[in-house]
Amino acid sequence: MLAYIVRRLLWTPVLLALAAFFVFIMGTWAPGDPAELRLGNRATPDNIKRERERMGLNDPIPVRYFNYVGGVLKGDFGDSYHYQGRSVLEIVRPRLWVSMQLNIAALIVAVSIGLPLGFYAAKKQGTARDPAIVISMLVLYAMPVFFTAPFLILFFAVKLHWVPASGWGGFFSLQIILPALTIGIPGAAVFVRFMRASTLDVIGQEYVRTAHAKGMSNFVVNYRHVARNALLPVVTIMGFTMAGMFGGSLIVELIYGIPGAGRLSLDAIFQRDFPVLTAFVLLGAGMLVFANLIIDIAYTIIDPRIRLQ
């Protein structure tokens, strides 16, 4: 197990380096020239030549790549192609922070709706309420964001004036409510599903039956034994959900006008801002690898039959 973790951790930098290399290759293969894009439609060939020189685009790929990797090792992710004279970190950091706050808010929504509802559904297994909950959550889950977002804006902002329609005001602002709901509700459906399954598992366990037999009150059994044990496997998917949200809030950010990482990375693709894009890939990949590792380890703890090798 320890050896496995060490091996995974050692492999991570190699993986990141390969991922970055992939972006470099795409960068040279993609049509569109970052220098030309930055200069706009009036650039003369001379302008472009000089700008390419300045941006270091004329160096061969391996040279650029190793310069880049060298920089990253020193914590320098280079300068943005699009935003003149800005370092990548200066641009990426605030945007990433915004996305993280949004995703945490969404996770709170998902968890606070999903877990109780999933638990409740499991307890009501056999009644009409269980399938009603499961199906309605699935309907919400399948609802495309292209509908959810405008619908929430129309209803809660334009009609009721309860919350702002768009924009970003930080974690503790009213603006975060709608986008957090938009991302969080489908997430809640996922949690309902897992929590329900996991609760059903636990309810069937011997110790729960024993607890009941010992005459413990329903409340105690439910919360001391069932809910707590049912939560364990569900918690492991939270990490995964977080990692998955990284690129997922893109359209939400677009419609709600949130200056998050999804928007920035999309812009980076369209603007051929490869330094920014590479930074995102590295950060995103790093998070994903880390999340996967945590999940794998968590699995072995929950289910000892699984062995990592």
Partner: peptide, 19 residues
């Protein structure tokens, strides 16, 4: 597979399609 799947999916798809 890990390298490929390490990319945020939607970004990779858009990048590939654009390129």
């Amino acid at each position: 597979g890990e390298v490929v799947s390490a990319f945020p999916d939607i970004l990779l798809i858009i990048l590939l399609a654009a390129t």
